[in-house]
Amino acid sequence: MTTLTLAPLARMARQTREQLNVKHLLHALGMPLLGLALFLLLWQGAASSIDTSLGKFPGPAAVLEQFDNLWAEHLNERARGEKFIAAQEARNARLLAENPGAEVSIRPYVGRPTFVDQIGTSLLTVLSGFVLATLIAIPLGIVTGLNRHVHAALNPLIQVFKPVSPLAWLPLVTMVVAALYVSEDPMFQKSFVTSMITVTLCSLWPTLLNTTAGVAAVSSDLQNVSRVLRLPWLTHVRRIVLPSAVPMMFTGLRVSLGIAWMVLIAAEMLAQNPGLGKFVWDEFQNGSSQSLSRIMAAVITIGLIGFLLDRIMLLLQKKASWDAN
């Protein structure tokens, strides 16, 4: 009896849930797609009415075409590289066959870096800079957070250096790297080191500030627990202070990585580090009819990679933080 009377109710409930699901799907998928479509329309409309010295501003179609071109160029370059290596190996094998004592030279293929290579370089640079920033910011943040005297001493410096643009740092970093980083056979290119250090200088502040705040804000209850247990200082820091600061640290790291990626493009442009920034700069200097659409392709790529990096950080944050849900 009850089931009979309840059945329509249950069906209704299910129906509303399905409706809700459809609504939810429309909202979660439909709206972004709508936004994207409107943006593309607007872009197309605006692009066709902008005339530059390099021709019309590229619309979505032109940019999409450039993505194809860039990929094709990459494959082409790879093929040439493989051909070069194969030819070299064949030649060396022949030389060795004729004269087993012959000195053969093995040279790597030095081709033009393709768009994909440049993405790789950019990622490597930003990650190196970010890791370096983290290695500086977290220990320093822990010390500043633990000791209010150190905090008082460093805080003005942090506040002053935090807002400095990468463009201001770059000339100094370039000169310092040129002066100090001298070796016969450098492990990294100077331009790489310059970009990396610039990224570090600009991206360490959020991590530093958040680590400081997180470490300083350990709840007094937990500190009392530690005092009652008479935890030695190091254990106190390791078991109480650091874990409780982890969520704040990760928030800082996420912001830092975002800044690192933004700064990198500017740094590469000026330092001529073979990454996406240099790609944009070269295309700008190149000034061909395709340049603008290639730059636009780079802009979109930069955006997508930045978004991806942020998502990865978010994932790590959820893994590492005890308070994340």
Binding site: V225, V228, R230, I240, W322
Partner: peptide, 15 residues
């Protein structure tokens, strides 16, 4: 620890 305290709001380490 010979005077252990039970705190009002449990004070467990949440992690």
């Amino acid at each position: 620890p010979e005077r252990a305290v039970v705190f009002q709001n449990h004070s467990l380490l949440p992690w």
